[in-house]
Amino acid sequence: MSTSMRQHKKPIISPLRYPGGKASLYPRLRTLVRANAMTEGTYVEPYAGGAGAALGLLITGEVQRIVINDLDPAIYSFWLAVTKHPGEFSQMVKTADLTVDEWLRQKEIYSIGSPENYLKLGFATFYLNRTNRSGVLNGGPIGGMDQTGNYKIDARFNKEGLIERIRLLALHSKQIKVTNSDGLAVIRKYSSRHNTLIYADPPYFEKAGSLYLNSFMDSHHSTLAACLNRAAGSKWLLTYDNVPRVAELYRERRREIFSLNYSAHRVVKANEVMVFSDSLVLV
């Protein structure tokens, strides 16, 4: 079965930029939430990253609660900081210097990576995400170190717009649970719960190293497949790059091909695959 995912009519809520982010799947996920009577339920992302789809569903009232989980302590620190201290975080955004010198300072904070000071680490993570090329945390600044590129370091740092996104998050912070666990543990925990939908978007097979700091080896993909296949009676869906290995690992599950625009370095359209648990009602 083949379909083309619509790239419009999606709320842009997440303050983070993510190459391959899944906010554009919002229309499809909204349809699945409604078809499975999950509007009073909990939506879980074990590999959240930018959590664009989760936040879109929450803020438009499609689900009541979301769980944002990320094993990367820097991404976790960002979500914890922005939900626990939105006012202080917004002030840091408002007063941020958008210069290469400040980029170097934030890069050092990020590199040291002290999660005990999650506000400081969370802001450094956010700063690099908004000022780096394509939002890749281990990349360089937009415009280069000499700022001679077509775009400068402030090109993706619209302070007013970002503060508004943080304000919206703050209004719903009591409905957001942020965790720093292994994705498998999160899937095992929530797959047995009633009225819960899990959307797993793990690191992909190809080019994962350039997009994710916590990339997977083949054994990780196999372990994840075993976990999800055992939970076929729960409500979950999974997205991957469309490679033959996915069809092997999930040969007994329903699968659907879709297209998605990526913006890492340049905009390209890629075919991906969505896998569904047996109990998920499809429309």
Rank of each mutant, 00 (worst) to 15 (best):
I59V: 15
V63I: 12
A81H: 03
G52T: 11
N69T: 04
V67A: 03
D70E: 10
L55D: 09
W79Y: 10
L57H: 04
F78M: 08
A53H: 03
A81S: 14
Y47W: 14
Q64E: 15
G49D: 12
L55V: 07
V67G: 02
G61M: 12
P73T: 10
W79S: 10
G50F: 01
I59R: 12
P46W: 04
I68K: 05
I66E: 13
A74S: 15
D72I: 01
N69S: 09
I68R: 04
L80Y: 02
E62W: 03
I68E: 07
E45V: 00
L71Q: 14
P46D: 13
Y76V: 02
G49A: 11
P73R: 10
A51F: 03
V67Q: 06
L58Q: 11
I75G: 08
D70S: 03
G49L: 11
T60M: 08
S77T: 06
L71R: 14
A54W: 05
D70T: 01
R65I: 01
G50E: 11
S77Q: 06
A51V: 05
I68P: 06
L80D: 10
V67H: 03
L55A: 06
T60D: 15
P46Y: 10
L58M: 13
T60K: 14
L71P: 00
N69I: 07
L58H: 12
L80N: 09
A54M: 11
A51T: 08
F78G: 06
V44S: 00
